[in-house]
């Protein structure tokens, strides 16, 4: 088989897209499942939208396989007032759980960055819980471009 450079490129992009696509074909979790998990995490409390929690995501992710995300919570991080944990959910993934970050006063700042997978365009949700029992939530929509070949 004699592939031109362009065909080769398209084939490899297609293969990469297939990887993401295969992921999205399986049953995706409904936002209700995410809401249920948030309820469990918050211990029945209604999370306050926004507040001290900031979730940073790209608006458009070209490759759903590595989407950089960042969470940060404004907190003094002292022994009696610090952020205990931050949990990340992706509403449209087959399994909405993404990660749980646990902080301690030794963390100095409640900030973390990582890279996640997104099956399709969807909302990413972050929920933070402080040692005082406050619960914050932030939500961002990330558009995921699937398919390639100049589309």
């Amino acid at each position: 088989m004699n592939l031109t450079r362009r065909q080769m490129l398209c084939a490899s992009v297609g293969a990469a897209a297939a990887g993401v696509f295969g992921f999205s074909l399986s049953a995706s979790a409904a936002p209700e499942a995410t809401a249920e998990s948030i309820k469990n995490f918050a211990g029945g409390k209604e999370p306050a939208m926004g507040g001290d929690l900031t979730l940073t995501t790209p608006e458009i992710a070209e490759n759903g396989n590595t989407v950089p995300i960042e969470v940060s919570v404004a907190s003094p991080m002292t022994d009696d007032d610090y952020v205990e944990s931050v949990v990340i959910y992706a509403e449209g993934n087959p399994n909405p759980d993404v990660a749980v970050f646990h902080f301690t006063p030794m963390s100095g700042a409640a900030e973390a960055k990582t890279r996640m997978r997104l099956a399709k365009t969807q909302n990413v949700v972050a929920v933070a819980k402080t040692s005082k029992g406050q619960v914050f939530m932030d939500k961002k929509e990330v558009k995921v471009t699937i398919g390639g070949c100049g589309g």
Partner: peptide, 15 residues
């Protein structure tokens, strides 16, 4: 969880 990308990268702070 499985939703973390291959070659997991984690950045955080410490005092």
């Amino acid at each position: 969880e499985p939703a973390i990308s291959a070659n997991p990268y984690i950045e955080f702070s410490a005092k």
